[in-house]
Every structure is written in structure tokens, then in C-alpha cells.
Simulated assay, not measured.
Amino acid sequence: MNILYSAPEINLSGGHGGSSHVSDVLASLEHLGHEIKLIDARKENTTQASKLYSYLVAPFLRTIKHCIFNDVDIVYERNRIFGGGAILAGNLFGKPSILELNEPAELSFEGLRGTVAKWIFNRVSKKATVITGTHNSFFNSLPKEKCLLITYGTNAEKFIPREPDAELIKKFGLVRGKTILYCGSFAPWHMLENTIVAAKDIIARDSEVKFLLLGVGGQFERIKTLIKTLKLENNILLPGKIPHTDMFSYINSADICLALFDRNYGPFKKYDYFYSPIKVHEYKSCAKPIIASSIGNLKTLVADGVNGLLVNEQNPKEIAEALHKLLNNKKLSADISKANREDVLQNYDWNIINSRILAAISRKAGNADGF
């Protein structure tokens, strides 16, 4: 089938979670035998007017062009504030469509721009054939018969368990069995300050343990200063922004991976933790034990004692004790590693998830042969 995928805010070379997500989704759809046409970002948008044009008007016009000059069987659109142009245009040509929600749409409904965003979203959601989301809070006020609760996943053929990368081991002086990894943005809701406090406890017990904190963001300098103040520079390393193509090497060079999120962060406090974080699926696909916050979707993705250990991220001592347990209980870590790889192969490979989404739209569109 010919799928037009619209992600007008995404630059595939951007190296952040959104670009990784879209790249893996497209690769999976192609693996399943579908032809893909992509509408992606052409420039960075800094004003509300430019976002309105880039996320609504431009995809609308580009979709009309695709529908006239190319074969389009399905329009698949990643939701964004002011987005939906591809679905609205596809509807003019009778094309079934998938609206992908990555967070509750009402998060963008505040103020004047929110009024405009809500008006657009209400019309787009009425035209969409299937609406996907990773948490039931996404579907408030939406027709339940259109809604499909899903998880996200990973490319299990790319993120496979391997031996630690020799160059990374040498570069950072890592010791097998004693490396802890975080990857993501340095944002307040990732609880990196509490991670540093917990790390101090662990390093005091074993000076060979090292933490690799990958990424950049608003709190980078603050975290760097805290590490220096606590005199932990030799054990807590900040490699910076890592290309997603190199991420599997870093994950495979680690022994424990972190997925901590602040339960008191406004949107999580209101809706619960609603994401299905790509990093968790990549960790699991590489057979790594995970320490995660005991909130929302994470409680399903990281079953306590099965896929890792759940903690209250507000308590650094609890984080430290979970780290200590996994570092020193090799059988538990090995059992979790095996379970995580099997879990991804059975439930969280993008091929499985996309097949389910396409089956849903096939049923809704009345296509007996499927997509």
C-alpha cells in the first residue's frame, strides 16, 4: 500500500526522540512492504504564524499534490499543535487516515493559540478514521470507536544485545558489570539531580562504578556544576549529544539503564505518566535491566522485578538501593535481561505495532483485503 506519512515538525536528522520515532516507524512500514511518501520539516518554526502554516497549511497543500499526482491509500499524520492538514486534505479525496497522538491534545488548548488549536483539532479528529494514543487520557471527548490504545516500540533488528563496544570501554574507562546509563534530554522532569545524589552513594560503595549521562538540555550546566561540586567528575561522565545511530553501542556498553520521570511534573500529575518512551524499548531490546519511576505507563512497561526495578524517583536513597541491588545480584540482572529481550520480540517491535494499527484502519475502512 501507498502511505503518506505527515510529520511536519520533524527533521529526520535531528537526533532527538521524535526523529528517532519517525525514522523507526517509517523503516517498519517499509519492511512490511508498504511504499512511503513523507511530509517532514523544511525549516525551523519560531512564531505561531509560521507553525500554523508549516503544520496545517503546507501539509494540506502537499497532500493535495500527492493525492493528485501519486497513489495514496492511507494518510498517516503525527499530531502537532495546529496540525492535521494532511488528514483534512486526504479526506477531500476519500482517503482513510490515522491520527497519531503523542500526548493529550488538550495540553495545547490554553490561551488564544489554544482556542485556534482546539478548533482545528476537533475538525481533524472528526475526519480521522483511526486515532492512536499511548494512554487513555488522550481519548477524552473523542469517539471511542475510533480510538486505539497502543504502545510504542523499537527496531528489534537494530537494537540487539551485543558485547560492550571496545572503543567506548577504553574511552571512558568502563568496568564490565559497573556501568549505568541515562539517555535523553537534561530537562527538570528527568530527575537528574536525584540521580546524581544516588550516584554519590553508589560510588562511595564502589569507586569502579561509572555513570554515562547522554544528552543535552536546559539543565546541562547545572548538572555539570553539581557533579563538580560533589567531586564526582571521574565517575559521572557527560558525553553530550549522541547520534541515534550510535545509541545501541552505548546501551550495549552499559549494565543498567535509567528511566526516571518526575511524578510531580504538571502534565504527569494531571494525566499520569502517559508516554511510551522509546528509550525504554531500546533498553529492553538490548536486554538491559531498567530502573524506572513507579508511575503511569512505566509500571506496565517495566514490571517490577521482571523488567527492572520500580522506584519513587523523589527519593535518591531508593534509587541508590535499586542500583545497588542490580549491581550486586547477577542472577536477578540476568533474568531481567532475558525477559526484556523476549518482551520486545513478542510485544514491542515496531513491525508488530504497525501491523496492529494497519489492521485497525483496514477494519474501519472496510477493506477486506487489508492494508
Rank of each mutant, 00 (worst) to 15 (best):
R123K: 15
N70M: 04
N79K: 08
G84T: 01
Y182E: 03
A187W: 05
P188M: 07
L149R: 12
N136D: 14
N102T: 07
A117E: 02
N102C: 04
Y53A: 07
V175F: 09
L107N: 13
N102R: 05
F109L: 05
S108R: 12
G184L: 09
T179S: 14
R123P: 03
G153K: 01
Y76D: 14
C147Q: 10
S54T: 11
G90T: 07
V124N: 01
G85F: 11
L168W: 11
G184E: 03
S137G: 05
G173R: 13
P59H: 10
I150Y: 02
E106C: 08
F93G: 09
P96K: 11
P164G: 03
I160F: 15
K170V: 04
E106T: 09
H135F: 14
Y152F: 11
I64R: 12
N136L: 11
C183W: 10
K127S: 14
W189F: 14
D73N: 15
I180G: 01
L174R: 02
K158N: 09
I68Q: 08
S185F: 01
T132P: 04
E77S: 06
T154S: 04
K170R: 14
D73V: 08
L142S: 07
R123C: 04
S141V: 06
A117W: 02
V124L: 04
F109R: 00
A166P: 15
F109V: 03
F121K: 00
L112F: 14
W189K: 04
C67Y: 08
A105G: 00
V124A: 00
S54N: 13
V116T: 11
K158H: 14
R162N: 13
N122Q: 15
R162M: 14
D73I: 07
S108F: 14
Y182H: 14
F69Q: 13
W189R: 06
K127A: 15
A166S: 13
A105K: 04
V57Y: 13
K65G: 01
N155K: 10
C67D: 06
T151E: 08
T132F: 05
H135Q: 13
N70S: 15
S125K: 15
G133C: 08
L174H: 05
G114T: 05
F186T: 04
I131Q: 01
A86W: 09
Y152R: 02
F138Q: 08
L168M: 10
F109H: 05
G94P: 03
R62Q: 15
R176A: 13
G184I: 06
R62C: 03
I169L: 13
